[in-house]
Amino acid sequence: MQGLLLRLSTLDTDAESAVRVIAYFDSLVRDHVSVPVLLTATARLTQCPVGLLDAATGRRTRVRADGTADTPALPGSVRELSSGLGAVWMEREGPAHGLDEIVLERYAAAAEVTLERAAALVHTARDPALVELALSAETGEAERARALRLLGFDPATPLQALAIALPDQGLASGLRAMGHHVRAATIGDTEAVLVATTLSAELPDAPRTGTGIGPEPPGASRVGVGPEPPGTSRVGVGPELPGARAAESWAGARTALRFTGPHDPVMRWSDLGALALFADLPEQAIAGLPDVRAMSRLGEESLLAVRALCLAGSVRGAAQAVHLHHSSLAARISRAESALGFSLGDQPGRMRAHLALVLVRLLC
């Protein structure tokens, strides 16, 4: 039905057209669409900006006919929703269309149902089971799409999955407080989080998320997961993919989580590159590598010295990074070289050491 009704401007102001408008919104309600999908569908129908105020969150959203969205001021004329759920409105420039009133009426009715369903999901704690369903690789396409809609996501909208090592130090709730659309569930020993946003540039003060293989280039990417993860929170961030491919993002997030450590608590799957392949190696094979065994036996001071040298590329640069005199750091590096059995004085040696450092994390 939605495909049969694309633009209000193509319809006459007769009873048959009014019935088609009603059927259009009934179809949206029947499909359990989310608020963003309802807004986009209404704007496409009317070919003008439409808005919605969610009274529960105080959020105002306006979507234009081309699908772009923003957060506007509340206009002077709105249609109030029942039970204090909020309000909706249309912003048509020029003369009104003969069906505008019935569109606004049906849009308001659909918004009430959609907002009530969203509130019911929160209060009945259905999110965890739906999140698991959306993230499972065994879930069928139609079943995943339905789960995403019930969670308030459009299956075509880009999502990112986060894998947070328990105990979660409040990262999911922090994202909600920032206004992100977030759904979470505990899966095994990991908090699984789905976020309808691109997590790439909102964490300017977070620890950098390099893989520890060579010095990071200027402007290295950071993970935008809101405030810096407090305490011992370790977070793997999956790739940004359409909701229909949420299972792939979740797999990437879990892989990235394995590469996190005390000095790199946040890791993006997209930053791992070819290193992600090592996550598929059997732990027994990794543990049997001489470099990994030698690196695992180093003390904390030596590990910090090796890591700093590999990131900085020089003893002086590493000493400055860890606030030590360069001669003190050089002594630690010398002891580490004796234990490792190879020199860290050249790029191949440092690359070898960095790879061993990364592989040690996969055994933790």
Rank of each mutant, 00 (worst) to 15 (best):
S82A: 14
V195H: 01
L357S: 03
V195D: 02
G179D: 13
L199Q: 04
V78E: 02
H181T: 00
L38M: 05
H323I: 15
S338D: 15
L38S: 02
H32D: 15
A294R: 02
R144T: 00
A279G: 08
L171F: 04
T198M: 15
V50F: 02
T124C: 03
A163C: 08
V306G: 01
S82Q: 14
E93C: 02
T68D: 12
P348V: 00
R44V: 10
M90V: 14
D271N: 12
A274Q: 12
A129E: 12
L203Q: 11
L151I: 00
A336D: 02
T42V: 12
A161P: 15
A192L: 05
R254A: 06
E228K: 14
R59N: 03
Y24D: 03
E202P: 04
E216C: 11
G94E: 12
L329W: 03
G349C: 01
A161M: 11
T209D: 15
Q160E: 09
R60N: 06
G236A: 14
C364Y: 06
S34Q: 04
G236Y: 11
V37A: 10
R59G: 03
L289W: 06
A201K: 11
L362D: 01
T139P: 05
D264S: 10
W89R: 05
L257W: 06
P230K: 08
T124S: 06
C310Y: 05
R144M: 02
G261Q: 02
L303N: 08
A253H: 06
G238M: 07
V29G: 13
L324V: 02
L52F: 07
L8E: 00
G51L: 12
L298H: 04
E91Q: 14
V225Q: 01
A111P: 04
A156V: 09
T139D: 05
T209L: 07
A318Y: 00
G94Q: 12
L130W: 02
L355A: 01
D271H: 14
R234D: 10
R20T: 11
G174Y: 01
I164S: 05
E228G: 10
L166S: 04
G273Y: 14
M90K: 12
L99E: 03
T190K: 01
R222G: 14
A276S: 15
R254F: 00
R106A: 08
E116Y: 00
L329A: 04
A165H: 10
T197L: 09
D12G: 11
H123D: 15
T190W: 00
A177I: 10
D66G: 09
L171H: 02
P72I: 09
T186Q: 14
A312F: 09
G210H: 13
P239W: 03
M90G: 04
Q2I: 15
T61G: 05
R316N: 14
D127G: 13
G140S: 05
D100C: 05
G224W: 07
M267D: 05
P262N: 08
F342A: 08
G76R: 15
Q284T: 04
L45T: 11
C310H: 08
S82E: 10
